[in-house]
Amino acid sequence: MAITAAQVKELRDMTGAGMMDAKKALTETDGDMEAAVDWLRTKGLAKAAKKADRVAAEGLVGVMVKGGRGVAVEVNSETDFVAKNADFQALVRSITDAAMAAGDLDALKAAHVGGKTVEDTLTAAIATIGENMTLRRMASVEGESVAAYVHNAAADGLGKIGVLVALKGADAGIGKQLAMHIAATAPMSLGEADLDPAIVEREREVQTQKALEENAESSKPKPDAVIHNNIIPGRMKKFLEEVTLLGQKFVMNPDITVAQAAKDAGVEITGFVRMAVGEGIEKKEEDFAAEVAKVAQG
């Protein structure tokens, strides 16, 4: 199949690979973007790509903690200008407050804010502010103590990234440090048992293919038993340490893991939420010439 320049650009943006390498990867995989990422990784030409790196939605994440419950909600807008609007910020804050008593997104939409449902309140705000807005998702955690952190804060409890951490045990300050760590590292899961098996299997396939190719090109190839019993398990162990919260090196003290940091502080991490504005949403991009032409046409 014919590979377009747009496909090559998207793959380069995702992986940081060179133009010719990206084009070859797409050619070898018949334009399958995820397979092309894996192909580049087996050749040592790219790191694992995250779909969250390709987001472009605007809006705010609101977080709130009351007692042993914390909630996070995401409200999207068309432009970043609205995210800086005081009325929009007040809206997101009121929806976040309503989420404290809601069990899920549908319940939140039906909850009442100022005498109207959240859904109706959002509709009215769209008419007032003049821009489309969407209540996209909510998440919550519960624990003996819950800590929160907002990154790139637009106002108190509102920002581009919101994090909640649920702990068993008294939080003497470690909670916020853990939340800041999560904001920075974006772990995929709490521990290995919580990680999507499909993600683990895909990584194992990539590492297996990569190890076999490296061994085939080596002047001193290793026995298959060494590849399958030592090298691949070692690489998978490193992968799990990088993507699971408990296995990661603690950003505040890289000499220990997050699990050890929590243990030293006398707490156990029982859950977390990391919500970033626009995760998984890809915004259609128009070339500049087409955009100018559209404006000129009115």
Rank of each mutant, 00 (worst) to 15 (best):
residue 6 A to R: 04
residue 40 L to N: 02
residue 30 D to T: 07
residue 6 A to Q: 05
residue 18 G to H: 01
residue 17 A to W: 02
residue 4 T to H: 05
residue 43 K to W: 01
residue 12 R to V: 01
residue 21 D to Q: 00
residue 15 T to F: 05
residue 45 L to W: 02
residue 9 K to R: 02
residue 55 V to C: 14
residue 19 M to L: 06
residue 12 R to T: 03
residue 6 A to V: 13
residue 57 A to Q: 13
residue 62 G to L: 09
residue 30 D to W: 06
residue 37 V to M: 07
residue 49 A to F: 12
residue 50 K to P: 14
residue 54 R to K: 12
residue 30 D to R: 08
residue 13 D to S: 05
residue 39 W to Y: 11
residue 41 R to G: 07
residue 6 A to G: 00
residue 56 A to K: 14
residue 30 D to G: 09
residue 41 R to C: 06
residue 27 T to S: 14
residue 12 R to P: 04
residue 55 V to T: 13
residue 25 A to L: 05
residue 17 A to R: 02
residue 38 D to F: 02
residue 33 M to W: 04
residue 14 M to L: 07
residue 29 T to H: 04
residue 26 L to H: 01
residue 59 G to N: 09
residue 23 K to C: 05
residue 25 A to P: 01
residue 36 A to W: 08
residue 61 V to C: 12
residue 13 D to T: 07
residue 46 A to Q: 07
residue 51 K to L: 15
residue 53 D to C: 13
residue 5 A to R: 01
residue 4 T to M: 08
residue 25 A to T: 01
residue 44 G to P: 03
residue 9 K to L: 01
residue 40 L to I: 10
residue 33 M to L: 08
residue 21 D to L: 04
residue 5 A to P: 01
residue 47 K to E: 14
residue 65 V to L: 10
residue 42 T to Y: 11
residue 37 V to W: 05
residue 42 T to A: 08
residue 64 M to V: 11
residue 35 A to V: 08
residue 51 K to F: 12
residue 57 A to N: 13
residue 14 M to P: 00
residue 49 A to S: 13
residue 22 A to I: 03
residue 27 T to F: 10
residue 57 A to M: 14
residue 32 D to S: 09
residue 51 K to D: 12
residue 45 L to G: 08
residue 45 L to E: 14
residue 61 V to Q: 13
residue 14 M to V: 05
residue 8 V to W: 06
residue 17 A to Q: 07
residue 56 A to N: 15
residue 4 T to F: 01
residue 38 D to T: 02
residue 54 R to Q: 09
residue 48 A to P: 11
residue 15 T to C: 01
residue 5 A to N: 00
residue 15 T to S: 04
residue 46 A to H: 06
residue 7 Q to C: 05
residue 59 G to L: 14
residue 37 V to C: 11
residue 64 M to A: 13
residue 41 R to K: 14
